[in-house]
Design a protein around this nucleic acid. Sequence first.
RNA 1: GGGAUCUUGGUGAAGCUGGUUAUCACGCCACCCUGUCACGGUGGAGGCCACGGGUUCGAGCCCCGUAGAUCUCGCCA
Length: 604
Amino acid sequence: MIKSITEIREFLMNFDQRTVTCGQLRAADAGKTVVLNGWVHRDRNHGALHFINLRDRYGITQVVVDDDASAELQKTASELKMEYCIAVTGLVRLRPQNMINSDMDTGEVEVKAEKIEILSRCATLPFVIDGDQVVNEDLRLKYRFLDLRSSGMQSRIRLRHEFIKAIRDYLCDEGFYEIETPTLIRSTPEGARDFLVPSRKYPGKFYALPQSPQLYKQLLMVSGFDKYFQIARCYRDEDSRGDRQLEFTQLDLEMSFVKRDDVLGLMERLFGYVFKRVMNYELPAHFRRIDYFDAMNTYGCDKPDLRFGCEIKDIASVVQKSTFDAYKEILANKGSVKALVAPKTEGFDFTRKYLDEVGEAAKVYGAKFVPFIKVGANNALSGSAAKFFVGLEAELCSLLGAKEGDVIFMVAHESWKKCCASAGAIRTKLGKDLNLIRPGFEFCWIVDFPLFEYNEDEGHWEAAHHMFSMPQAKYIPTLEENPGEVRGDLYDMVVNGYECASGSIRIHDIELQKRIFRICNFSDEEAEKKFGFLLNAFKFGPPPHGGIAPGIDRLVMIMSDQNSIREAIAFPKNSFAVSPMDDSPNDVDQKQLDELKIYFKLDK
RNA sequence: GGGAUCUUGGUGAAGCUGGUUAUCACGCCACCCUGUCACGGUGGAGGCCACGGGUUCGAGCCCCGUAGAUCUCGCCA
């Protein structure tokens, strides 16, 4: 019985420390006496014979309590329950030949327990670690510390670590400096909503958390650190999504004296190196480059999944000749008409219900009605829109490359972009449902994005990417005449249907930068007030520069074949920006608010 | 801000056209078990069927509202 404080301290501190991990014992270790520390993963008690799967970060080792064990050892073993944290001292021995478990790395051996020490006990679990049930995500997040014990989370967190380590190694070898930038910064009117941090010393004033280190990395270029990177946390107060969190991590990167292809080339080398090292996956030396408009026209989005075909075609020419008046009217209104083909697929019936489902998927993006046409023998057409194409069957099928058993889907919209997006939604759905998607990673670059977008609500032009991106040279003399036509020196890196990096060559000319601000409805005075520090820096010999920022969380998600970014983050928020574990965001003490001179006026 | 789907012991699911005592698996508790590895066996505890209204002789099931969850459109340079 423990009596004194000293004894309690000794009991807590003097546990048997591990001499090996639970993942390392092999047949060659037989005969050694070892100490293991870990958690009870599974517990199989046969009465006089007792097996314990002991788990740590490195693996699982089978511990056996034999029938010749002391009464004390038997008693301790019988007390064990799942997730107890224990120390086991014992002898490594070969398992009998027919008892080898080839599914376990340590399956050739087991540890015959001589002593088991319970380091701590575990309450009844809210869910079984590595159980076969899919657990409600909010519950997983509430008990994230337990969820992280699962093999899936452990391997993703390890992948993330190795990914970041490989990035650092590669970039450092290429001569990059890793430089930190502040997280309490000035709020600037960039794309997303800022998170604000009130200043205690200056009541009524606020810092903002950076949406990205954009301006700081440009200032570092002015300072002459011509190759910079940072594993940077970014904050954007926008609604969460499966592939989006309000705080996320970017590889932020910037280089001086470069042109677009230098940045793309560096990224191709970096990702080639990283994917080989952490995934043992070979990427091509160069990624395909696709013009933004080609991507929209062919794939219906600016982040195409190239792992399958199902390309979208413009069918305006055939529709013009048809009797499809509703679509002809849309064309007359400067709209677009596009179509794509769902290929005949073994074991998949294009039921009426499914065809309607496809239509619904497109309607989310604005398509009003989505006719389909089934292709029979000799280009015989049937289905809701077949009657409009009498006499044009062969032309339609050959334009689309449709064969017997295929189904043609059509979409139309006055807005070219919405027409593309609707067709893209169909393409994505077909890819998934018809199992058209090849395994692997298919990277590409989407380049030459428009520099400006018109904001209908606000009634002025704004930067499609951000205001520091360089217009392509040929547009520079006439930027103001038709901003909608201007293309930027912009590029996105895309893999498997996800945008995984975004970047541009930046403006380093103060006059050009001011022109961009003006087009985006910032007067010189306002620009000076909000971006004065950048403009000021540009007076002092700024170098030409450009960069890019890959999203770390999203890439880890893709690399580990998940479809939620939360699977790649140790402690994420849920889709409603709440952390069920620590219950943030939360109320704070009135005293804290008083210090900050903050008073609320809540709705209702 | 809009739309879709969902909410049943600790966990995951079933629950028919509205009809007794809400079913199953995992987990939990007790006991048994000498080669398991998702061990097995016997027994047991554990439910205001998310919450609030309504329809009905009768609601887990139908209707309305509220809350929460996931996905999604907008938004996210």
